[in-house]
């Protein structure tokens, strides 16, 4: 029972970490390797808001999500736009931005146990005799809410449908008068804001440390590769596969195998089915 409850919590946590990354890649084919850095930056900004500026929890959190979203947009608008369409350069440039953010935070003194975010509602309840704290239940609720919200958004709203169209064939969308750079700006903004949401619900369970930024990036990449790049359904399924695998290793082996599981999942996927669980094959390129 313990494995099931904590497996679900861990899986939803992974999904939360990965959704922003998947969203940006899904819409704009842009691998945002600064994703983990935005996650930690969001945690730090929320901490500054609550602890240093005394702005109150709600204000700090909302402001953090907003600011990180804007920073994501700015990163695309001023940096990534120059290397758009060159995947290796996109990875290097966004990873460099991430390195800059994370190491700047370390240099500012972000280390050790001093930086923590408060839980929203303290306390623990027993689910099937397994103790679960409210914050972990909140993680599951918010994760499910975001997934449901994104699903409804892309299924029933016109902007969502348009974004889905663009995700399927960006060049065709450009030919139909859609500015792909504007859409990529929106996508990186949304993706970064999702990283901030994930940070705010997940970070109270641990400390805000630079290393977690790198770890979140690894988890997000693992989930996306196993699920099939750009596929949301695949990402969610992959979160559950990797999430439960991690919990099983924690129960039967040792806890520091979590990252190993994620990396192993990447390797196995690349050997067995390189396009991932739900990866679509590339359409034939237009003949020149």
């Amino acid at each position: 029972m313990e494995i099931i409850v904590y497996g679900i919590v861990n899986s939803v946590s992974l999904a939360l970490m990965a959704l922003g990354f998947t969203l940006v890649y899904g819409i704009s084919r842009l691998p945002n390797f600064a994703h983990g850095a935005f996650y930690i930056l969001a945690g730090y900004l929320a901490w500054v808001g609550i602890r240093s500026l005394n702005m109150g929890y709600i204000v700090s959190v909302l402001l953090t999500i907003f600011v990180v979203g804007i920073l994501g947009m700015a990163m695309y608008r001023f940096f990534l736009i120059r290397v758009r369409g060159m995947p290796i350069s996109e990875i290097i440039a966004s990873y460099a931005m991430g390195l800059f953010i994370l190491e700047a935070l370390r240099w500012k003194g972000l280390k050790g146990m001093t930086f923590t975010l408060p839980v929203i509602y303290p306390g623990t309840i027993f689910l099937f005799d397994v103790p679960v704290d409210y914050q972990r239940l909140l993680v599951v609720a918010i994760g499910a809410g975001i997934v449901a919200g994104l699903w409804l958004f892309t299924k029933f709203t016109r902007l969502g449908l348009a974004l889905r169209g663009i995700a399927q064939d960006e060049q065709a969308a450009m030919m139909l008068g859609i500015d792909s750079d504007a859409m990529a700006t929106v996508a990186t903004g949304l993706g970064s804001a999702l990283a901030a949401v994930a940070a705010i619900v997940l970070l109270p369970l641990g400390n805000i440390v630079v290393e977690a930024g790198y770890q979140v990036l690894i988890f997000a990449v693992a989930v996306c590769i196993v699920g099939g790049l750009g596929s949301w359904a695949g990402a969610i399924l992959a979160s559950f596969i990797i999430g439960f695998a991690q919990i099983l290793t924690v129960s039967y082996m040792q806890s520091h195998f979590q990252v190993v599981v994620a990396l192993l999942a990447i390797i196995l996927t690349l050997i067995a089915k390189p396009s991932g669980l739900f990866g679509r094959q590339k359409q034939l390129e237009e003949r020149v």
């Binding site: 449908l161 348009a162 169209g165 399927q168 064939d169 065709a172 139909l176 359409q283 237009e286």
Partner: peptide, 21 residues
């Protein structure tokens, strides 16, 4: 496009929603 490039997973009328936006 020479090799048609509709949005395959969208219904025909919803294919027009991208350009209409």
């Amino acid at each position: 496009f020479q090799n048609m490039r509709p949005y395959y997973s969208l219904e025909a009328y919803r294919n027009l929603i991208v350009p209409l936006n």
